[in-house]
Amino acid sequence: MATIKFTSNLNRFYPALKPIEFNGKTINEALERANTQFPGIKEYIVDEQGVLRQHVNIFINNEMIQDRNNLGDPIEDLREIYIMQAISGG
């Protein structure tokens, strides 16, 4: 079992957004899982081709994922996946 966490910035569209448990092997599967619980959230994270959006990044246990194009980075048990995005305020 791994955990998926989100930047609180996504709360503006998904006020009930909270960490979710996940059984799966890749980041791609994690996003599918998130999209089941929060319909449409995947569109904020990947583009029409399924490639990670340029202003979004994903970390597995604080390590940046390598495969932005296919989201095939493997996820092992007890890992924490963190989905975050660029912010511009100053």
């Binding site: 910035n9 503006r12 904020y44 959006r53 340029q54 202003h55 979004v56 990044n57 940046m64 995005q85 660029a86 912010i87 511009s88 305020g89 100053g90």
Partner: peptide
């Protein structure tokens, strides 16, 4: 190296819009 390109138009609001 974290965010190769800026977000597309409208994707991320600024502080005037989203607050801080």
């Amino acid at each position: 190296d974290i965010f190769p390109e800026p977000p597309p138009p409208g994707q991320v609001p600024n502080c005037a819009e989203g607050g801080v």
